[in-house]
Computed example of a mutant assay.
Amino acid sequence: MTNIYLDYNASTPIAPEVSAVMRPLLGDLFGNPSSDHWAGHPAAEVLSGARAHVATLLGANPEEIVFTSGGTEANNLALKGTFFALRQKGEHVITQATEHPAVLEPLAFLESLGANVTYLPVDGVGRVDPDAVRRSVTSRTILISIMHANNETGTIQPIEEIGDVAREFGIRFHTDAAQSVGKIRIDVDALGVDLLSMAGHKLYAPKGVGALYVRKGAALEPLLHGAGHESGRRAGTESVLLAAGLGEACRIAMEWVEQPAVQRLRDVFWSALREAFGNRVTLNGHPSERLPNTLNVSFPGKAGAEILSRMPEIAASTGSACHAGRITLSPVLEAMGVAPEVGMGAIRFSLGRGTTPAEIDEVVGCLRAIL
């Protein structure tokens, strides 16, 4: 059996077009983009072009894009930057239970500094209720942070409705869109967000680069202080190489977000699993409001980690962890109320541009042989 990669939500390979754009920059484009001379000007032009590509993908303006080292830094800048900039107005933050640790951990840190964080529950398919967000607003609320799509189940949150709540009360709204950028169409105005985080290695760009969309006029306290790079929002000389890679990845993503090929293959995969296993396989997450590439399924009574260990050629993720012989349920599935005997058998298959029908057939056949 050949190696099969079905873990695109964890990381994607660098797209050939991205490599082609980055390769020449390793040699000739060495100038500092902030330098006002012949060596700096070409670097600044590449950086500007990359910023424009990122902005176009998000429906934003180029000056609203801040390059970061990845999604984690973008989330930290959005959360901590807002708290420190607006703490004189309040200390209350609203989020929800199934956020990525790159949001939950910064918020836990801010709690140690006096932040008051409300963690809203989700329903059985992993969605938060916009009315619950509205009911949680207080006169001290300065930020709402709800992820766009869940990294484990692919469930897409009702961001537009929550954006309406944020605008109604004049509260800043952040979304972690690391999993959704490049997979579904995104427009920051339609979503109603003021801050949006993204990560390069989730959309066929290199690791080590990401971006934060910052709506014009939204004040942020920088995490890194120094010279006035990124319009004073992130000090440090920009990596033209990595920014160019992210920009090109965003440019080609515009061609992919409307193509249904990956979703069709995911649906074929799910149909084949149901045909093979019947009620011995269940779907985790929303049946339709879900990322087009993500299939999180459970084999009740089985252990997902054990299943994957018997298929070492298949790269996928499990929804449970085994520690000292004890299986721990994923916090996401636990928050959704998934029964332990179901959640322990969870596996996340996330497809990508390189996934083929033959690979799906091979995985289904392998699962048949094991189960």
Rank of each mutant, 00 (worst) to 15 (best):
I171H: 01
P158A: 12
E248W: 04
D164H: 03
V128A: 10
K302D: 10
A244N: 12
V181R: 01
D7H: 08
E255S: 14
A97Y: 02
I307C: 02
L291S: 07
A199V: 03
L79M: 11
R310T: 12
L104E: 12
P357I: 11
I65D: 06
E152F: 10
A303W: 05
V21H: 05
V268S: 15
V297G: 03
I307S: 01
V181P: 02
G354Q: 09
P158I: 11
G247P: 10
V128Y: 07
P106G: 12
P312S: 05
G301V: 11
M254L: 15
Q96N: 09
A219P: 05
N3Y: 01
I370Q: 14
L104N: 09
R167C: 00
A211G: 06
A358Q: 14
N116H: 10
H323L: 15
L223E: 10
M311A: 13
T12V: 03
D36N: 08
M336G: 02
D187Y: 04
P42F: 05
P16G: 08
E161Y: 03
V165M: 06
L273P: 08
A305G: 08
A43G: 10
A149R: 00
V125T: 14
A108T: 14
I360Q: 04
M1G: 02
S298L: 02
G247M: 09
R185K: 13
G40C: 07
V193Q: 00
K89Y: 13
E152V: 10
V137P: 02
A10L: 04
E152M: 11
L241K: 07
A324H: 13
G343C: 09
A272L: 14
P206Y: 09
A303E: 14
M336L: 06
F30L: 14
S197R: 00
A44F: 06
T141Q: 07
E341V: 10
A43H: 07
T12I: 04
L191Y: 00
L220K: 10
A166R: 00
P292Q: 05
T155R: 01
A132K: 11
A55Y: 05
N151Q: 13
G352N: 05
R134Q: 11
A205N: 08
E221F: 10
A43D: 07
R264Y: 11
V18K: 02
E63A: 13
R135S: 14
